[in-house]
Simulated assay, not measured.
Amino acid sequence: MLNPQWLRSFAAVAELGGFTRAANQLGLTQAAVSQHMQHLEAQLGPLLVRRGRQIELMPAGVALLDYCNAVEQAHKRLQLQLSDRTVDSGEVSLITPGSVGLALYPLLLDLQQAHPGLVIRHRFAPDTETREAVLDKRYEIGVVTLRPDDPRLAAEPFAEEPLELVVPAGEDVQSWADLERLGFIDHPDGQAMATRLLARRFPASPGVRALPLRGFSNQISLILAPVARGLGFTVIPRHAREAFADAAAIKVIECGAPVVDTLWLLHRAEWPLSARAKWVVERIRERLKFSARAHETK
């Protein structure tokens, strides 16, 4: 492993363009900086060319400077992760399904705007990838639609996600024949969701597989685009429908008793959530509950 002091000397020389200026900035002698450069070049080969008072990096020098910058960024990330003095600063990482992720992302941006010291890293992913990411410690928090049966993961209810039958704004659904006329816009979870919801509204129906397929999208934010254009209907979680920009172009059909999925919050069982993560989770839980209450009063 390269000596960190040698790397600091090299980065200063590359940034400031001279040994003397680098030595002054680092509080070292010029001879010490030169010695550090000699050590690096003995291991890595020529790093720079001196042209009078100018210094030009060679290809190995460019690569080493990129390495120095990566080490510096990693150090800053480590400091953010270990700094737990205040709950509204430092990094929080979470990975969620796309549907609830669409609802959460604006809330996370609101938190970052209100608390500039907060760094939130958010990724959309299906359940399998989410479980693996939390187990591999790439994300501190995960949200999944199915509670995992894994003793390494702690799971608790996080939010409820009702399913909705969504059609073009000018359409209505009174019978199974209306769905056959419209056709189905599918997505990765579409047939499973539609089966669960439509069985409540049309218990004697032949099932969603019997409906004509009008389209498919694996992008959660795009599933409602063909519905808005009158190309068919779909069944989708409410959070995804509420995040759709063209709300006037779609319509939700009531299906009687709601079909509601429970979303589960995951973290490594042996490690409690950081204070920052707990604080962020509580903030977004409050906002999601407020949104749910507002929907119930409509």
Rank of each mutant, 00 (worst) to 15 (best):
L163Y: 01
K289R: 14
A245W: 11
F233C: 02
G207P: 10
R50T: 04
Q73C: 14
T128P: 02
S99G: 06
R201P: 12
P148A: 00
Q191P: 07
L57R: 02
L265M: 14
V227R: 09
L266Q: 00
G18R: 10
G61A: 01
E160V: 07
A12N: 00
F233A: 06
A294F: 12
L266S: 00
L111H: 08
A42T: 10
R181H: 10
R268I: 10
G183V: 08
L104S: 05
A103N: 04
V235D: 03
T20H: 11
R196M: 13
L80H: 02
H36E: 13
S291A: 12
Q81P: 06
G90K: 00
G170A: 04
G215Q: 10
A154S: 15
G215C: 01
V280C: 11
A257R: 07
R53C: 01
A177D: 04
D88F: 03
I223E: 01
I95G: 04
L118S: 04
P168H: 07
P46K: 02
I253M: 08
D136E: 13
T297S: 14
V49T: 11
I55E: 02
L118H: 00
D88I: 04
Q113K: 00
Y67H: 15
G61R: 04
E129L: 15
V173W: 06
V227Y: 11
V208S: 05
I185N: 07
L80V: 03
L163M: 12
H187A: 06
R147E: 13
P206C: 09
K289L: 13
S34P: 13
S93G: 08
I120M: 06
A74D: 07
A60K: 12
S291Y: 00
A14P: 14
R123K: 08
S9Q: 11
L94G: 02
L65Q: 14
A204W: 14
A277I: 11
Q174S: 11
L198R: 11
L2H: 14
P162I: 02
L7P: 02
A23W: 03
